[in-house]
C-alpha cells in the first residue's frame, strides 16, 4: 500500500516535470543560453563577423589597463553613479511626499494619483522626443516660458550644456518613473495598521512626530526596494540617454554612461566603417552586471538591518 502511494507520487512528480519542461526549455533558450554565451564571448576577440577567437581574460585586462579604454569606462561609470545619487536625492522625498499625501486622502487624490502615475505609461522614446521639444533653445517650451515671464537671462542652450545635461536627464527620468516609486511607498503606507497610529495619537503624538518616529521607520521595506531598483535602473540606463544625447552622450561625452559606451563598442560605425568589438562590449556588460549584483546585495543587507517589525 505504502509503496503504491510512493509510485503514484513519483509518477505525478514526473508528470509535473513534464509540464514544466516546455517553460524550462524556452527559458533556457532565451535566458540561460544568452547569459552563458555572453560570458563566453567576453573571453573572445570578435568583431561580430567571422569566427570568435578565444583570448582568455584579455578583454577584461584591456578594459582596466588600455589607456584608450579605461578612462572612458571610469568616466561612464562615474556618470552612472552620479545619476544614481542625484535620482535618489531628488526622487525619494518627492515620491514619499506624494505617497503620504495620497495616503492621507487629500482632496482630489484619485486625480493626483493618476496624473503622477501617467508618465510611467508613456514610452521612453516618446518622453525623449517631448523633452527635446521642451528643451529646444529657440522654439522650445522652457526658453519661451522664461522669456515670457521676464527671465531672459536664464535662457540657456539646455541640452548642449556639459555641466547640466546629466541633471536634465535625471529630472526627465524622475518625471517619467516617479509614479512607480510613489506606488511602492503608498502600498507600504496602506499596510501600516491603523491601530498603531491611533495608539500614538492617544499618547499625544503630533502629526510630524507620528511621521518621523513611526511611519518613516515602518516604510523601511519600500525604501529598501526603491533604493535597489533605482540603483539597477541607474547603472543599466541607456534608452533615454541614447534618445536625447545620442550614442556618444553629447555634448562631448558629458552624458556618456556604461550603456552608451557598451553600445558604441558593440555597434559603432562611422561612414559605413564598422569597428565593433563584441568581445570587449560583452566584457563591459558583464562588469555592469557584476557591479549591480555586488552593490545591490550590499544595499539589501545594509538596508534590511534597519527594517522594523511591529
Amino acid at each position: 500500500m505504502k509503496s503504491g502511494m510512493k509510485a503514484q507520487n513519483r509518477r505525478s512528480f514526473r508528470t509535473f516535470l513534464l509540464f514544466l519542461l516546455p517553460a524550462v526549455l524556452v527559458y533556457s533558450m532565451i535566458i540561460v543560453y544568452p547569459m552563458l554565451s555572453s560570458f563566453y564571448y567576453s573571453l573572445t576577440e570578435w568583431s561580430g563577423l567571422g569566427k570568435a577567437r578565444f583570448i582568455g581574460m584579455n578583454n577584461y585586462v584591456r578594459l582596466f589597463t588600455d589607456p584608450n579604454i579605461y578612462p572612458v569606462f571610469w568616466r561612464a561609470l562615474g556618470h552612472n553613479f552620479y545619476i544614481f545619487a542625484l535620482t535618489l536625492i531628488i526622487q525619494t522625498p518627492l515620491a514619499l511626499y506624494f505617497a503620504y499625501a495620497l495616503d492621507r486622502k487629500v482632496r482630489g487624490h484619485a486625480i493626483y494619483r493618476n496624473v503622477i502615475f501617467f508618465p510611467v505609461l508613456i514610452s521612453t522614446v516618446t518622453v525623449a522626443f517631448m523633452s527635446l521639444i521642451v528643451f529646444e533653445p529657440n522654439i522650445g517650451l522652457l526658453n519661451n516660458l522664461l522669456d515670457k515671464v521676464g527671465l531672459e537671462d536664464w535662457v540657456q542652450p539646455w541640452l548642449g550644456m556639459e555641466n547640466l545635461i546629466l541633471l536634465i536627464l535625471v529630472l526627465i527620468m524622475i518625471w517619467k518613473s516617479i509614479g512607480v516609486n510613489m506606488m511602492l511607498y503608498l502600498a507600504n503606507l496602506q499596510s501600516i495598521p491603523g491601530e498603531v497610529l491611533e495608539a500614538a495619537m492617544m499618547d499625544g503624538a503630533t502629526e510630524f512626530q507620528k511621521f518621523r518616529k513611526m511611519i518613516f521607520p515602518l516604510l523601511a521595506p519600500s525604501f529598501t526596494i526603491n533604493v535597489v531598483l533605482t540603483f539597477i535602473g541607474s547603472i543599466g540606463t541607456f534608452d533615454i540617454v541614447y534618445a536625447i544625447a545620442g550614442e556618444n552622450g553629447q555634448p562631448n561625452f558629458s552624458a556618456d554612461v556604461l550603456g552608451t559606451f557598451y553600445y558604441r563598442t558593440a555597434f559603432t560605425q562611422t561612414l559605413g566603417l564598422q569597428s565593433s568589438d563584441m568581445g570587449l562590449a560583452t566584457a563591459i556588460a558583464l562588469v555592469m552586471f557584476f557591479i549591480i549584483l555586488v552593490v545591490s546585495v550590499i544595499q539589501l543587507k545594509l538596508l534590511q538591518k534597519r527594517e522594523l517589525e511591529y
Binding site: 544568452p34 554565451s37 543599466g236 562590449a281 560583452t282 556588460a285
Partner: peptide, 25 residues
C-alpha cells in the same frame, strides 16, 4: 521578506543581463 527581496533582485538582474545578451544576439 528578505527572501522575497533577494528573489526580486535576482529576477531584476536576470532581466538586465538578458537585455545585454539579447542586444548581442
Amino acid at each position: 521578506h528578505g527572501k522575497f527581496m533577494i528573489g526580486l533582485l535576482i529576477l531584476a538582474l536576470f532581466a538586465t543581463l538578458t537585455g545585454c545578451g539579447n542586444s548581442n544576439r
